[in-house]
Design a protein around this nucleic acid. Structure first.
Lengths: 211, 211
DNA sequence: CCTTGTATCATACAAACGTATGAGTGAGAC
DNA sequence: GTCTCACTCATACGTTTGTATGATACAAGG
Protein backbone atom coordinates (compact mmCIF):
# COMPACT_ATOMS: atom_id res chain seq x y z
CA UNK A 1 0.00 0.00 0.00
CA UNK A 2 1.14 3.56 -0.51
CA UNK A 3 2.62 5.11 2.56
CA UNK A 4 1.22 8.51 3.30
CA UNK A 5 2.40 8.83 6.87
CA UNK A 6 5.45 10.84 7.78
CA UNK A 7 7.61 7.82 8.61
CA UNK A 8 8.72 7.19 5.06
CA UNK A 9 10.61 3.94 4.56
CA UNK A 10 14.14 4.14 3.33
CA UNK A 11 13.24 3.60 -0.32
CA UNK A 12 10.55 6.27 -0.39
CA UNK A 13 13.02 8.81 0.97
CA UNK A 14 15.72 7.73 -1.47
CA UNK A 15 13.27 8.29 -4.31
CA UNK A 16 12.45 11.75 -3.02
CA UNK A 17 16.12 12.68 -2.76
CA UNK A 18 16.93 11.32 -6.19
CA UNK A 19 13.91 13.17 -7.51
CA UNK A 20 15.16 16.45 -6.10
CA UNK A 21 18.52 16.01 -7.79
CA UNK A 22 17.32 14.71 -11.13
CA UNK A 23 14.19 16.81 -11.63
CA UNK A 24 16.23 19.91 -10.79
CA UNK A 25 18.94 19.01 -13.26
CA UNK A 26 16.99 17.53 -16.15
CA UNK A 27 13.41 18.63 -15.59
CA UNK A 28 10.30 16.52 -15.31
CA UNK A 29 10.15 15.27 -18.88
CA UNK A 30 13.92 14.91 -19.00
CA UNK A 31 13.99 12.49 -16.09
CA UNK A 32 12.84 8.94 -16.73
CA UNK A 33 11.45 6.61 -14.13
CA UNK A 34 14.26 4.22 -14.97
CA UNK A 35 17.12 6.63 -14.34
CA UNK A 36 15.43 7.94 -11.21
CA UNK A 37 14.89 4.56 -9.61
CA UNK A 38 18.42 3.53 -10.59
CA UNK A 39 19.83 6.68 -8.97
CA UNK A 40 17.85 5.88 -5.84
CA UNK A 41 19.08 2.29 -5.87
CA UNK A 42 15.50 1.10 -6.09
CA UNK A 43 13.52 -1.14 -8.35
CA UNK A 44 11.74 0.11 -11.45
CA UNK A 45 8.37 -0.33 -9.80
CA UNK A 46 9.27 1.57 -6.66
CA UNK A 47 7.80 4.90 -7.76
CA UNK A 48 4.46 3.39 -8.64
CA UNK A 49 4.39 1.51 -5.39
CA UNK A 50 5.39 4.33 -3.05
CA UNK A 51 3.92 7.35 -4.79
CA UNK A 52 1.37 6.02 -7.24
CA UNK A 53 2.90 7.71 -10.26
CA UNK A 54 5.84 9.73 -11.48
CA UNK A 55 3.75 12.89 -11.37
CA UNK A 56 2.84 12.43 -7.73
CA UNK A 57 6.45 11.92 -6.76
CA UNK A 58 7.28 15.12 -8.61
CA UNK A 59 4.61 17.05 -6.73
CA UNK A 60 5.99 15.78 -3.46
CA UNK A 61 9.47 16.87 -4.46
CA UNK A 62 8.34 20.39 -5.37
CA UNK A 63 6.29 20.62 -2.22
CA UNK A 64 9.14 19.47 -0.02
CA UNK A 65 11.32 22.31 -1.17
CA UNK A 66 8.87 25.18 -1.67
CA UNK A 67 6.73 24.95 1.43
CA UNK A 68 9.61 25.41 3.92
CA UNK A 69 10.76 28.44 1.97
CA UNK A 70 7.34 30.02 2.15
CA UNK A 71 7.18 29.40 5.88
CA UNK A 72 10.58 30.99 6.32
CA UNK A 73 9.63 34.11 4.42
CA UNK A 74 6.36 34.40 6.29
CA UNK A 75 8.00 34.11 9.68
CA UNK A 76 10.57 36.74 8.81
CA UNK A 77 7.91 39.12 7.55
CA UNK A 78 5.90 38.59 10.72
CA UNK A 79 8.95 39.38 12.86
CA UNK A 80 9.74 42.65 14.54
CA UNK A 81 11.74 45.67 13.52
CA UNK A 82 11.32 48.29 10.84
CA UNK A 83 9.87 47.37 7.50
CA UNK A 84 13.15 47.93 5.71
CA UNK A 85 15.06 45.76 8.15
CA UNK A 86 12.50 43.00 7.71
CA UNK A 87 12.84 43.40 3.96
CA UNK A 88 16.56 42.99 4.38
CA UNK A 89 15.96 39.89 6.48
CA UNK A 90 13.78 38.39 3.76
CA UNK A 91 16.50 38.86 1.18
CA UNK A 92 19.11 37.34 3.48
CA UNK A 93 16.84 34.45 4.38
CA UNK A 94 16.38 33.69 0.73
CA UNK A 95 20.13 33.67 0.13
CA UNK A 96 20.61 31.31 3.04
CA UNK A 97 17.87 28.99 1.96
CA UNK A 98 19.30 28.99 -1.52
CA UNK A 99 22.69 27.96 -0.23
CA UNK A 100 21.13 25.07 1.64
CA UNK A 101 18.87 24.00 -1.22
CA UNK A 102 20.51 24.79 -4.53
CA UNK A 103 17.88 22.73 -6.33
CA UNK A 104 15.04 24.96 -5.20
CA UNK A 105 15.34 27.72 -7.76
CA UNK A 106 15.80 25.24 -10.56
CA UNK A 107 12.70 23.29 -9.60
CA UNK A 108 10.60 26.38 -9.05
CA UNK A 109 11.75 28.14 -12.17
CA UNK A 110 11.24 25.16 -14.39
CA UNK A 111 7.68 25.11 -13.24
CA UNK A 112 7.22 28.82 -13.85
CA UNK A 113 9.09 28.78 -17.13
CA UNK A 114 6.71 26.28 -18.67
CA UNK A 115 3.83 28.16 -20.16
CA UNK A 116 1.05 26.00 -18.79
CA UNK A 117 -0.44 26.01 -15.35
CA UNK A 118 2.21 25.83 -12.69
CA UNK A 119 2.02 22.65 -10.64
CA UNK A 120 -1.02 22.86 -8.40
CA UNK A 121 1.22 22.26 -5.44
CA UNK A 122 3.27 25.37 -6.20
CA UNK A 123 0.50 27.94 -6.25
CA UNK A 124 -0.47 28.04 -2.56
CA UNK A 125 2.98 28.66 -1.09
CA UNK A 126 3.79 31.10 -3.86
CA UNK A 127 0.60 33.00 -3.21
CA UNK A 128 1.34 33.16 0.48
CA UNK A 129 4.83 34.54 -0.11
CA UNK A 130 3.48 37.14 -2.45
CA UNK A 131 0.76 38.16 -0.01
CA UNK A 132 3.29 38.51 2.79
CA UNK A 133 5.59 40.69 0.70
CA UNK A 134 2.74 42.83 -0.56
CA UNK A 135 1.51 43.53 2.95
CA UNK A 136 5.05 44.27 4.07
CA UNK A 137 5.39 46.91 1.40
CA UNK A 138 1.97 48.30 2.28
CA UNK A 139 2.95 48.61 5.90
CA UNK A 140 6.17 50.34 4.89
CA UNK A 141 4.24 52.84 2.80
CA UNK A 142 1.87 53.61 5.66
CA UNK A 143 4.81 54.15 7.99
CA UNK A 144 6.57 56.34 5.48
CA UNK A 145 9.55 54.03 5.15
CA UNK A 146 8.80 52.87 1.62
CA UNK A 147 8.14 55.17 -1.27
CA UNK A 148 4.70 55.14 -2.85
CA UNK A 149 3.84 52.90 -5.76
CA UNK A 150 1.84 49.79 -6.62
CA UNK A 151 2.51 47.53 -3.66
CA UNK A 152 1.65 44.40 -5.57
CA UNK A 153 4.58 44.76 -7.91
CA UNK A 154 6.86 46.37 -5.35
CA UNK A 155 6.48 43.24 -3.27
CA UNK A 156 7.74 41.28 -6.24
CA UNK A 157 10.80 43.51 -6.45
CA UNK A 158 12.04 42.34 -3.06
CA UNK A 159 12.80 38.81 -4.16
CA UNK A 160 13.65 39.62 -7.74
CA UNK A 161 17.34 40.09 -7.05
CA UNK A 162 18.01 36.88 -5.12
CA UNK A 163 15.82 34.87 -7.49
CA UNK A 164 17.53 36.25 -10.55
CA UNK A 165 20.94 35.61 -9.08
CA UNK A 166 19.92 32.06 -8.27
CA UNK A 167 18.81 31.61 -11.84
CA UNK A 168 22.18 32.79 -13.11
CA UNK A 169 24.12 30.77 -10.58
CA UNK A 170 25.55 28.22 -12.98
CA UNK A 171 26.42 30.62 -15.81
CA UNK A 172 27.97 33.01 -13.29
CA UNK A 173 30.03 30.20 -11.89
CA UNK A 174 31.10 28.89 -15.26
CA UNK A 175 31.75 32.08 -17.18
CA UNK A 176 32.56 34.65 -14.50
CA UNK A 177 33.98 32.42 -11.80
CA UNK A 178 31.49 33.69 -9.24
CA UNK A 179 30.44 30.91 -6.87
CA UNK A 180 27.19 31.68 -5.09
CA UNK A 181 27.59 28.62 -2.91
CA UNK A 182 30.85 29.86 -1.45
CA UNK A 183 30.01 31.37 1.93
CA UNK A 184 32.31 34.37 1.66
CA UNK A 185 31.28 35.25 -1.88
CA UNK A 186 27.66 34.84 -0.95
CA UNK A 187 27.97 37.24 1.94
CA UNK A 188 29.53 39.87 -0.26
CA UNK A 189 26.81 39.47 -2.86
CA UNK A 190 24.04 39.40 -0.28
CA UNK A 191 25.33 42.63 1.25
CA UNK A 192 25.25 44.30 -2.10
CA UNK A 193 21.82 42.90 -2.94
CA UNK A 194 20.42 44.03 0.39
CA UNK A 195 21.65 47.55 -0.19
CA UNK A 196 20.17 47.57 -3.67
CA UNK A 197 16.75 46.44 -2.49
CA UNK A 198 16.74 48.71 0.54
CA UNK A 199 17.60 51.82 -1.43
CA UNK A 200 15.27 50.80 -4.22
CA UNK A 201 12.33 50.81 -1.84
CA UNK A 202 13.24 53.56 0.61
CA UNK A 203 11.56 56.93 0.46
CA UNK A 204 13.81 59.70 -0.76
CA UNK A 205 15.25 61.94 1.90
CA UNK A 206 12.79 64.61 2.82
CA UNK A 207 9.82 62.85 1.27
CA UNK A 208 6.61 63.17 3.21
CA UNK A 209 4.61 60.30 4.56
CA UNK A 210 1.84 59.49 2.14
CA UNK A 211 -1.56 60.38 3.49
CA UNK B 1 19.50 19.41 -48.73
CA UNK B 2 19.21 21.54 -45.62
CA UNK B 3 18.72 25.18 -46.30
CA UNK B 4 21.10 27.39 -44.40
CA UNK B 5 20.56 30.60 -46.31
CA UNK B 6 18.39 33.37 -45.02
CA UNK B 7 15.60 32.83 -47.53
CA UNK B 8 13.82 30.16 -45.55
CA UNK B 9 11.02 28.44 -47.42
CA UNK B 10 7.57 28.69 -46.03
CA UNK B 11 7.73 25.37 -44.22
CA UNK B 12 11.02 26.09 -42.49
CA UNK B 13 9.64 29.32 -41.13
CA UNK B 14 6.41 27.67 -40.02
CA UNK B 15 8.48 25.13 -38.10
CA UNK B 16 10.44 27.90 -36.42
CA UNK B 17 7.27 29.73 -35.40
CA UNK B 18 5.60 26.59 -34.11
CA UNK B 19 8.82 25.79 -32.26
CA UNK B 20 8.77 29.16 -30.54
CA UNK B 21 5.23 28.63 -29.35
CA UNK B 22 5.51 25.00 -28.32
CA UNK B 23 9.01 24.94 -26.84
CA UNK B 24 8.10 27.98 -24.77
CA UNK B 25 4.93 26.39 -23.50
CA UNK B 26 5.93 22.78 -23.03
CA UNK B 27 9.72 22.80 -23.02
CA UNK B 28 12.10 20.85 -25.22
CA UNK B 29 11.36 17.38 -23.87
CA UNK B 30 7.68 18.17 -23.58
CA UNK B 31 7.33 18.96 -27.27
CA UNK B 32 7.33 16.06 -29.72
CA UNK B 33 8.25 16.41 -33.34
CA UNK B 34 4.82 15.06 -34.18
CA UNK B 35 2.89 17.77 -32.38
CA UNK B 36 5.32 20.38 -33.63
CA UNK B 37 5.09 19.43 -37.27
CA UNK B 38 1.33 19.13 -36.97
CA UNK B 39 1.13 22.62 -35.45
CA UNK B 40 3.21 23.91 -38.31
CA UNK B 41 1.01 22.14 -40.82
CA UNK B 42 4.01 20.20 -42.07
CA UNK B 43 4.93 16.60 -42.56
CA UNK B 44 6.53 14.50 -39.86
CA UNK B 45 9.85 14.47 -41.70
CA UNK B 46 9.98 18.22 -42.16
CA UNK B 47 12.18 18.92 -39.14
CA UNK B 48 14.79 16.38 -40.14
CA UNK B 49 14.77 17.69 -43.66
CA UNK B 50 14.98 21.40 -42.94
CA UNK B 51 17.01 21.46 -39.74
CA UNK B 52 18.69 18.07 -39.49
CA UNK B 53 17.28 17.25 -36.06
CA UNK B 54 14.91 18.41 -33.38
CA UNK B 55 17.82 19.74 -31.36
CA UNK B 56 19.07 21.96 -34.16
CA UNK B 57 15.62 23.43 -34.69
CA UNK B 58 15.49 24.18 -30.98
CA UNK B 59 18.83 25.96 -31.09
CA UNK B 60 17.63 28.05 -33.98
CA UNK B 61 14.52 28.97 -32.04
CA UNK B 62 16.46 30.03 -28.97
CA UNK B 63 18.92 31.94 -31.09
CA UNK B 64 16.20 33.74 -33.00
CA UNK B 65 14.79 35.20 -29.84
CA UNK B 66 17.87 35.83 -27.69
CA UNK B 67 20.26 37.39 -30.16
CA UNK B 68 18.01 40.36 -31.03
CA UNK B 69 17.53 41.03 -27.34
CA UNK B 70 21.26 41.10 -26.75
CA UNK B 71 21.74 43.49 -29.65
CA UNK B 72 19.06 45.76 -28.30
CA UNK B 73 20.61 45.90 -24.84
CA UNK B 74 24.05 46.53 -26.27
CA UNK B 75 22.87 49.37 -28.46
CA UNK B 76 21.09 51.03 -25.56
CA UNK B 77 24.14 50.72 -23.32
CA UNK B 78 26.32 52.19 -26.04
CA UNK B 79 23.98 55.15 -26.42
CA UNK B 80 24.43 58.59 -24.94
CA UNK B 81 23.27 60.20 -21.74
CA UNK B 82 24.03 59.63 -18.11
CA UNK B 83 24.68 56.14 -16.82
CA UNK B 84 21.50 56.08 -14.80
CA UNK B 85 19.41 57.18 -17.75
CA UNK B 86 20.96 54.47 -19.89
CA UNK B 87 20.22 51.99 -17.12
CA UNK B 88 16.65 53.14 -17.19
CA UNK B 89 16.59 52.73 -20.96
CA UNK B 90 17.85 49.15 -20.61
CA UNK B 91 15.04 48.29 -18.24
CA UNK B 92 12.46 49.87 -20.49
CA UNK B 93 13.89 48.18 -23.55
CA UNK B 94 13.58 44.84 -21.83
CA UNK B 95 9.95 45.48 -20.93
CA UNK B 96 9.21 46.42 -24.51
CA UNK B 97 10.97 43.43 -25.95
CA UNK B 98 9.13 41.22 -23.51
CA UNK B 99 5.80 42.58 -24.66
CA UNK B 100 6.70 41.85 -28.26
CA UNK B 101 8.12 38.39 -27.53
CA UNK B 102 6.32 36.86 -24.57
CA UNK B 103 7.99 33.51 -25.31
CA UNK B 104 11.47 34.85 -24.74
CA UNK B 105 11.64 34.64 -20.97
CA UNK B 106 10.10 31.20 -20.98
CA UNK B 107 12.58 29.85 -23.48
CA UNK B 108 15.55 31.48 -21.78
CA UNK B 109 14.55 30.52 -18.29
CA UNK B 110 13.83 26.94 -19.18
CA UNK B 111 17.36 26.72 -20.44
CA UNK B 112 18.79 28.35 -17.33
CA UNK B 113 16.56 26.40 -14.98
CA UNK B 114 17.87 23.08 -16.19
CA UNK B 115 20.95 22.22 -14.24
CA UNK B 116 23.11 21.15 -17.13
CA UNK B 117 25.02 23.30 -19.54
CA UNK B 118 22.82 25.97 -21.01
CA UNK B 119 22.38 25.56 -24.75
CA UNK B 120 25.63 26.49 -26.44
CA UNK B 121 23.73 29.01 -28.48
CA UNK B 122 22.59 30.88 -25.38
CA UNK B 123 25.97 31.57 -23.82
CA UNK B 124 27.43 34.11 -26.26
CA UNK B 125 24.54 36.59 -26.28
CA UNK B 126 24.11 36.20 -22.53
CA UNK B 127 27.78 36.89 -21.97
CA UNK B 128 27.63 39.97 -24.16
CA UNK B 129 24.65 41.35 -22.25
CA UNK B 130 26.38 40.74 -18.97
CA UNK B 131 29.57 42.37 -20.14
CA UNK B 132 27.68 45.42 -21.34
CA UNK B 133 25.85 45.82 -18.04
CA UNK B 134 29.02 45.31 -16.02
CA UNK B 135 30.85 47.99 -17.94
CA UNK B 136 27.87 50.30 -17.61
CA UNK B 137 27.97 49.95 -13.85
CA UNK B 138 31.73 50.44 -13.85
CA UNK B 139 31.39 53.63 -15.83
CA UNK B 140 28.73 54.85 -13.43
CA UNK B 141 30.98 54.21 -10.49
CA UNK B 142 33.85 56.09 -12.09
CA UNK B 143 31.56 59.02 -12.77
CA UNK B 144 30.21 58.95 -9.26
CA UNK B 145 26.65 58.22 -10.37
CA UNK B 146 26.51 54.67 -9.08
CA UNK B 147 27.42 53.67 -5.56
CA UNK B 148 30.45 51.43 -5.02
CA UNK B 149 30.19 47.66 -4.95
CA UNK B 150 31.06 44.60 -7.02
CA UNK B 151 30.17 45.69 -10.52
CA UNK B 152 29.80 42.14 -11.75
CA UNK B 153 26.80 41.46 -9.57
CA UNK B 154 25.46 45.01 -9.72
CA UNK B 155 25.22 44.59 -13.45
CA UNK B 156 23.04 41.58 -12.83
CA UNK B 157 20.75 43.64 -10.61
CA UNK B 158 19.70 45.85 -13.51
CA UNK B 159 17.80 43.16 -15.35
CA UNK B 160 16.73 41.19 -12.30
CA UNK B 161 13.48 43.08 -11.88
CA UNK B 162 12.17 42.81 -15.44
CA UNK B 163 13.32 39.21 -15.73
CA UNK B 164 11.70 38.22 -12.46
CA UNK B 165 8.49 39.96 -13.43
CA UNK B 166 8.52 38.18 -16.75
CA UNK B 167 8.94 34.89 -14.92
CA UNK B 168 5.93 35.62 -12.77
CA UNK B 169 3.86 36.90 -15.66
CA UNK B 170 1.43 34.01 -15.84
CA UNK B 171 0.90 33.57 -12.08
CA UNK B 172 0.49 37.31 -11.70
CA UNK B 173 -2.09 37.30 -14.44
CA UNK B 174 -3.93 34.30 -13.10
CA UNK B 175 -3.88 34.94 -9.38
CA UNK B 176 -3.53 38.70 -9.07
CA UNK B 177 -5.15 39.83 -12.28
CA UNK B 178 -2.08 41.80 -13.33
CA UNK B 179 -1.56 41.63 -17.08
CA UNK B 180 1.99 42.46 -18.11
CA UNK B 181 1.01 42.42 -21.76
CA UNK B 182 -1.50 45.18 -21.33
CA UNK B 183 0.20 48.37 -22.48
CA UNK B 184 -1.16 50.61 -19.74
CA UNK B 185 -0.40 48.17 -16.94
CA UNK B 186 3.05 47.56 -18.34
CA UNK B 187 3.84 51.26 -18.37
CA UNK B 188 2.82 51.63 -14.74
CA UNK B 189 4.94 48.64 -13.74
CA UNK B 190 7.89 49.71 -15.84
CA UNK B 191 7.83 53.15 -14.23
CA UNK B 192 7.92 51.61 -10.81
CA UNK B 193 10.65 49.15 -11.79
CA UNK B 194 12.76 51.89 -13.29
CA UNK B 195 12.54 53.93 -10.11
CA UNK B 196 13.48 50.89 -8.05
CA UNK B 197 16.54 50.09 -10.12
CA UNK B 198 17.63 53.71 -10.38
CA UNK B 199 17.46 54.33 -6.65
CA UNK B 200 18.99 50.94 -5.94
CA UNK B 201 22.09 51.87 -7.88
CA UNK B 202 22.37 55.62 -7.29
CA UNK B 203 24.93 56.99 -4.87
CA UNK B 204 23.45 58.41 -1.71
CA UNK B 205 23.12 62.15 -1.57
CA UNK B 206 26.38 63.72 -0.56
CA UNK B 207 28.49 60.64 -1.25
CA UNK B 208 31.88 61.33 -2.75
CA UNK B 209 33.09 60.06 -6.09
CA UNK B 210 35.17 56.94 -5.55
CA UNK B 211 38.83 57.53 -6.20
C1' DC C 1 11.35 15.63 -73.53
C1' DC C 2 14.11 14.42 -70.35
C1' DT C 3 17.02 15.31 -66.51
C1' DT C 4 18.06 17.40 -62.18
C1' DG C 5 17.26 19.21 -57.66
C1' DT C 6 14.16 20.57 -54.00
C1' DA C 7 10.49 19.57 -51.21
C1' DT C 8 6.68 16.78 -49.28
C1' DC C 9 4.69 12.61 -48.35
C1' DA C 10 3.40 7.96 -45.97
C1' DT C 11 5.52 4.56 -43.68
C1' DA C 12 8.95 1.79 -41.04
C1' DC C 13 12.19 1.19 -37.31
C1' DA C 14 14.39 0.48 -33.00
C1' DA C 15 14.55 2.52 -28.67
C1' DA C 16 12.66 4.47 -24.58
C1' DC C 17 8.72 5.72 -22.16
C1' DG C 18 5.24 5.14 -17.84
C1' DT C 19 2.70 1.74 -15.80
C1' DA C 20 0.70 -3.03 -14.70
C1' DT C 21 1.23 -7.64 -13.19
C1' DG C 22 2.33 -11.50 -10.48
C1' DA C 23 5.79 -13.96 -8.14
C1' DG C 24 9.00 -13.84 -4.36
C1' DT C 25 10.92 -12.33 0.39
C1' DG C 26 11.13 -11.73 5.16
C1' DA C 27 9.56 -10.04 9.67
C1' DG C 28 5.68 -10.01 13.24
C1' DA C 29 1.09 -11.92 15.09
C1' DC C 30 -1.26 -15.54 16.85
C1' DG D 1 3.60 -23.55 11.80
C1' DT D 2 1.37 -20.60 8.99
C1' DC D 3 -1.01 -16.54 8.01
C1' DT D 4 -0.54 -11.71 6.98
C1' DC D 5 1.29 -7.75 5.55
C1' DA D 6 4.57 -4.39 3.48
C1' DC D 7 7.84 -4.46 0.30
C1' DT D 8 11.04 -5.68 -3.67
C1' DC D 9 11.76 -7.76 -7.79
C1' DA D 10 11.84 -9.23 -12.92
C1' DT D 11 9.25 -8.93 -16.66
C1' DA D 12 5.67 -7.66 -19.97
C1' DC D 13 2.35 -4.32 -22.26
C1' DG D 14 0.97 -0.85 -25.18
C1' DT D 15 2.44 3.94 -26.50
C1' DT D 16 5.17 7.31 -27.94
C1' DT D 17 9.58 8.86 -29.02
C1' DG D 18 13.22 10.78 -32.79
C1' DT D 19 14.96 9.54 -36.99
C1' DA D 20 15.57 6.89 -41.51
C1' DT D 21 13.87 5.43 -45.88
C1' DG D 22 12.11 5.45 -50.39
C1' DA D 23 8.43 6.95 -53.36
C1' DT D 24 6.21 10.93 -55.34
C1' DA D 25 5.35 15.86 -57.05
C1' DC D 26 6.87 19.52 -59.58
C1' DA D 27 9.26 23.55 -61.31
C1' DA D 28 13.73 24.89 -63.84
C1' DG D 29 17.49 24.03 -67.28
C1' DG D 30 19.29 21.97 -71.19
Amino acid sequence: MHDTDGTAPETARALLDAGRRLFARYGYDGTSVRTLTAEAGANLGAITYHYGSKRELYDRVVESVVVPLAERVESVVAGGGSVLSRTEAVVRAYFEYLAENPELPQLMMQELALGGEPAAVLAPPLTRVHAALTSLVGEGQERGEVRPGPRIVMGVFILSVPVHLAMLRLPLQRYVGLDLLDAQTRKRIADSAVEFVREGLRVRDGAEVAA
